Computed example of a mutant assay.
Amino acid sequence: MPARATDARRAAVLGSPIGHSLSPVLHRAAYGELGLTGWSYDRFEVDEAGLPAFFEGLGPEWAGLSLTMPLKRAVIPLLDEISETAASVEAVNTVVFTEDGRRVGDNTDIPGMVAALRERGIEQVDSAAILGAGATASSALAALARVCTGEVTAYVRSAARAAEMRQWGERLDVGVRTADWADAAEALRAPLVVATTPAGTTDALAPAVPERPAVLFDVLYEPWPTALAARWSLAGGAVISGLDLLVHQAVLQVELMTGRSPVPPDALRAAGEKALSER
């Protein structure tokens, strides 16, 4: 049932560390656009050990939760149901509390990434490259399963990571080839490059950006732009940022938690950009 504007409902983002999270800024902006004056959205520092007790302390006023690291897998045993999307990568970033008291987990990172690509007119590519092999890389693979018709090459630092990415590819029905990180400059020639690594990791690749780059999806949003994104943009390539991903996954979270749609992504993006500029 869609939320009434005056309903006193709560939502929040959980994780550790959580102080940097932009989710409160984005969700509150969405509530403002939707006229949900009775809704609040906060952040809580919660680690894996503290998650069960946090859940047990929630009352009927709670509509949903956003989850970041390290809780996306730890939460699964606490839920009554998870979506096929969340199950495909064994990661839940959204929990919705239903009217009958059930806890339902979902993953909006994957469709959020697809939505961010489509916002830039990218509906389909014939191949892609992923830089990195962590948890975000598996979500990127799941998103690429929806837009990439050919092979995905993952550039990784170890044989163990390479094996993991190939396993994810088999599970997600994506053709995955792995390559050594030492050859990561080759990735930059792909029609779509998804950088999933921590801040600073791809800086050394910036000088290798080709004369006519295609599309870079860099999941970072702070600090921004990354050295790679700045050089990419300077060369005339299309750049999609981590803020774009954060906005689109938040749009989907708000719709799931409130039952209201559509949620305007531009309003959330403007709020996020303002908050980042003030840090």
Score class of each variant (00 low, 15 high):
residue 41 Y to E: 07
residue 39 W to E: 00
residue 226 T to W: 13
residue 141 L to A: 05
residue 161 R to C: 10
residue 156 V to F: 12
residue 59 G to Y: 03
residue 17 P to W: 11
residue 223 P to I: 10
residue 236 G to L: 11
residue 170 E to D: 15
residue 119 E to V: 12
residue 232 W to L: 09
residue 22 L to I: 03
residue 261 S to G: 13
residue 23 S to M: 02
residue 190 A to N: 03
residue 97 F to N: 01
residue 250 A to Y: 03
residue 107 N to V: 12
residue 201 T to H: 13
residue 201 T to N: 01
residue 130 I to G: 01
residue 279 R to F: 09
residue 129 A to G: 11
residue 121 G to C: 05
residue 143 A to W: 06
residue 55 F to D: 06
residue 25 V to F: 12
residue 192 L to Q: 04
residue 100 D to K: 11
residue 135 A to H: 11
residue 3 A to M: 15
residue 216 L to N: 08
residue 269 R to V: 08
residue 220 L to A: 14
residue 146 R to D: 13
residue 56 E to S: 15
residue 63 A to G: 15
residue 194 V to P: 03
residue 153 T to M: 06
residue 266 D to L: 14
residue 125 V to E: 02
residue 88 S to L: 14
residue 152 V to A: 03
residue 46 V to F: 06
residue 203 D to R: 06
residue 108 T to E: 04
residue 185 A to I: 00
residue 146 R to W: 04
residue 158 S to H: 13
residue 44 F to C: 11
residue 111 P to F: 08
residue 272 G to M: 04
residue 263 V to S: 00
residue 96 V to H: 08
residue 29 A to M: 03
residue 198 P to N: 10
residue 163 A to G: 10
residue 41 Y to L: 07
residue 13 V to G: 01
residue 252 L to D: 02
residue 11 A to N: 08
residue 88 S to F: 09
residue 169 G to Q: 04
residue 95 V to E: 09
residue 271 A to F: 05
residue 265 P to Y: 03
residue 64 G to W: 03
residue 35 G to Q: 01
residue 106 D to H: 13
residue 1 M to G: 14
residue 12 A to L: 06
residue 161 R to W: 07
residue 159 A to R: 15
residue 62 W to E: 08
residue 47 D to L: 10
residue 137 A to T: 08
residue 133 A to H: 05
residue 248 H to L: 05
residue 226 T to E: 10
residue 109 D to C: 01
residue 224 W to E: 09
residue 82 I to N: 11
residue 34 L to Y: 02
residue 277 S to H: 04
residue 69 M to Q: 13
residue 139 S to T: 15
residue 195 A to L: 11
residue 91 A to T: 05
residue 233 S to P: 09
residue 108 T to F: 08
residue 210 P to V: 08
residue 251 V to C: 04
residue 133 A to E: 08
residue 1 M to P: 14
residue 241 S to G: 14
residue 20 H to V: 05
residue 251 V to F: 02
residue 112 G to P: 00
residue 265 P to L: 13
residue 153 T to G: 09
residue 101 G to K: 02
residue 222 E to H: 14
residue 82 I to F: 04
residue 195 A to R: 11
residue 191 P to S: 07
residue 45 E to F: 11
residue 21 S to A: 07
residue 157 R to A: 07
residue 273 E to Q: 15
residue 183 D to H: 14
residue 268 L to M: 02
residue 199 A to L: 11
residue 279 R to G: 13
residue 64 G to K: 01
residue 239 V to T: 14
residue 112 G to F: 01
residue 131 L to H: 08
residue 49 A to P: 06
residue 243 L to G: 00
residue 43 R to P: 05
residue 242 G to H: 05
residue 186 E to G: 05
residue 257 M to R: 06
residue 110 I to E: 05
residue 231 R to D: 09
residue 17 P to V: 14
residue 278 E to R: 15
residue 90 E to F: 13
residue 251 V to T: 04
residue 39 W to R: 02
residue 200 G to P: 03
residue 117 L to Y: 09
residue 128 A to P: 02
residue 205 L to C: 01
residue 172 L to I: 10
residue 131 L to Y: 04
residue 193 V to S: 08
residue 249 Q to Y: 01
residue 66 S to I: 01
residue 101 G to R: 10
residue 233 S to K: 15
residue 198 P to L: 06
residue 232 W to R: 11
residue 247 V to A: 09
residue 214 A to H: 15
residue 168 W to E: 09
residue 278 E to I: 12
residue 79 L to C: 02
residue 178 T to Q: 09
residue 174 V to L: 09
